[in-house]
């Protein structure tokens, strides 16, 4: 049992961490927390199942297409729900617009895809029991994603430009950086990362329209724990959440696990509002 707690805990944790990174990627260039993060994860599973099981495409086509489609959804989000409300960020209208887009995505999926969970294909037929691919795949994907992001941010000028926009949008604009293009690009990137979460976790979560809302909440907890915009914090927070949740699940049962996670979430928010690794709040006056 111990092995399966660890295996499923790390797997779920990796999925939550990836959704947390999706939130962060969008937040970095726009200061917007978008409710579409979880939906992108849901779509990763649904598109994967649609393309590979229903349409019978091989993995080499199915995965890139899924990523592309979700990147497209990310870009649409930027244009429809983020750009129009960026001017009045302090009114928090983005909460409403991104929620609306998230619900549109969810409802269209429910009606056009299915309201029942649909199977997701096995990709490699590798591993058994605790080493089953459905467990290690999300963890591996999370590791690859964070490595790729670290490379992007540390070694490439375009990654530096992302960081610059995230650190000081105004100064970046004054310097002549293409801040708008970079923001759209970050939403596309977030779409792909969310898709990876859903795709790699497809065998665990299945292709189910209601996953979006669940991932929205459980993917946000790592962000709240780690501090907004902190990817490393999100990974630590995500894995910790996954392990805690699965351990509670196996030992005291599902209901109490959910309640415990929720209570923990509120307590952390009250005790460390900026997250355990976050920066202090800015001045108001």
């Amino acid at each position: 049992m111990f092995a399966s707690i660890i295996a499923s805990g790390l797997a779920m944790g990796a999925i939550y961490a990836l959704i947390g990174i999706t939130y962060n990627t969008m937040f970095a260039t726009s200061r917007v927390m978008s409710f579409t993060a979880g939906q992108l994860g849901m779509l990763g599973g649904v598109f994967g199942s649609l393309l590979m099981l229903r349409l019978g495409l091989p993995l080499v086509l199915g995965l890139p297409l899924t990523l592309l489609l979700c990147a497209g959804v990310g870009i649409v989000t930027e244009f429809v729900a983020v750009r129009p409300v960026l001017k009045s960020l302090d009114q928090h209208l983005y909460v409403l617009t991104t929620l609306a887009v998230a619900l549109l995505i969810q409802q269209v999926t429910a009606i056009e895809w299915s309201t029942e969970p649909q199977p997701f294909p096995r990709l490699f037929e590798l591993g058994r029991d605790a080493w089953d691919e459905k467990y290690w795949l999300p963890v591996a994907t999370c590791a690859v994603t964070i490595s790729a992001l670290e490379f992007l941010y540390r070694r490439t000028l375009i990654g530096r430009a992302f960081l610059a926009v995230a650190e000081d949008n105004f100064a970046a604009r004054a310097l002549g950086l293409p801040e708008r293009t970079l923001r759209v690009a970050s939403y596309a990137m977030a779409g792909a990362i969310g898709a990876l979460a859903g795709f790699s976790g497809g065998q665990l979560l299945l292709a189910f329209f209601a996953n979006g809302q669940l991932l929205n909440f459980y993917g946000f907890i790592p962000v709240a724990l780690g501090g907004l915009g902190n990817n490393r914090g999100a990974i630590i927070g995500g894995l910790a959440l996954g392990l805690f949740q699965q351990a509670a699940n196996f030992t005291v049962g599902g209901i109490f696990a959910s309640v415990a996670v929720f209570v923990l979430f509120i307590v952390v928010l009250l005790v460390a509002p900026q997250g355990l690794f976050g920066a202090p709040a800015s001045r108001r006056v």
Binding site: L157, R160, A161, L163, A164, E167, D168, F170, A171, A172, A174, L175, G176, L177, P178
Partner: peptide
Amino acid sequence: IEGHRVFNHSSVNDNLLLAGFD
């Protein structure tokens, strides 16, 4: 712009490279 707002988390070199982004 005012207030020497350079990018704190990037190196001096990267700060300058960013100025010549395109």
